[in-house]
């Protein structure tokens, strides 16, 4: 059991938001604490708190200062943080994302093979053998900033970014890997594409995962891609553990 040697800093973001900084460095432990605070803030329904955005090392809380003062809110947040125990973090959710690493779905696979010196099969094997922690969502709705990618498949971003990357593209950008939830410009090297819609505004939960959840990729072929894309692109399998 960890106690709370964790000292947080409150950073002012104007009159209606405050950032709670847990650390200056990314770590799974920090992320667990942020996840705990995010869950507590959501379940406690503190009057005057509008919403909160967890990020790598901090969390920004948006509030109405005419309902709750910043001082009062900070006190409440400290109380929540002080009640943190490692065991108080709930189940681990792993979202299983099918990815086709073949043909037209993987336009940069060849360059990643060249840059890493690894054959395609090895890259797919490495890319699909880790549960990636979602540190935060940002840039685009549902764009996950994932941690934990194997160093062997790191590859620099493209020198000139693409103007359009299709929805569902899976890429590698430096030390990171991720999914483009909707069509967007971008500079990551595309090694595959998922037929599932991680972003669907028509679904009850437009984005299925949250910061603190995990993503696990698994390899499918082009026939399977077509099948999922036409039958049930909005259904995403999730594994709960612990």
């Amino acid at each position: 059991m960890t106690n709370n040697t964790c000292k947080v800093r409150f950073l002012s973001c104007g009159d209606s938001a405050v950032t709670v900084e847990f650390s200056k460095e990314m770590s799974e432990e920090t992320n667990r604490k942020i996840r705990f605070l995010a869950a507590k803030i959501e379940s406690d329904r503190i009057k005057g708190v509008l919403e909160s955005v967890p990020t790598f090392c901090s969390m920004t809380v948006y509030f109405d200062p005419l309902v709750i003062s910043r001082k009062k809110l900070e006190k409440r947040i400290l109380k929540i943080i002080n009640s943190y125990k490692e065991s108080s973090v709930g189940k681990r959710r792993v979202f299983l994302i099918p990815v086709c690493y073949e043909g037209e779905y993987a336009p940069d696979m060849e360059s990643v093979c060249d840059l890493t010196g690894l054959p395609k099969e090895e890259i797919v094997k490495i890319h699909t053998s880790t549960d990636y922690l979602i540190y935060m969502l940002g840039f685009l709705p549902g764009f996950p900033y994932l941690g934990g990618m194997d160093k062997r498949i790191e590859a620099p971003r493209l020198k000139s970014p693409r103007t359009v990357i299709p929805e569902g593209a899976v890429g590698i950008g430096g030390k990171q890997t991720g999914i483009y939830p909707l069509a967007s410009p971008g500079g990551w090297r595309l090694i595959g594409r998922t037929p599932v819609r991680v972003y669907d505004p028509e679904r009850a939960e437009p984005i299925v995962y949250k910061a603190g959840d995990y993503i696990r990729f698994y390899s499918i072929n082009e026939t399977e891609f077509e099948k999922i894309a036409t039958s049930a692109p909005s259904v995403i399998e999730v594994r709960e553990e612990g």
Binding site: C13, G14, M26, T55, F56, C57, S58, T60
Partner: peptide, 10 residues
């Protein structure tokens, strides 16, 4: 910085 949240008017 390590990316963090942005408020309106930042």
């Amino acid at each position: 910085i390590i990316s963090d949240g942005i408020a309106t008017g930042a």
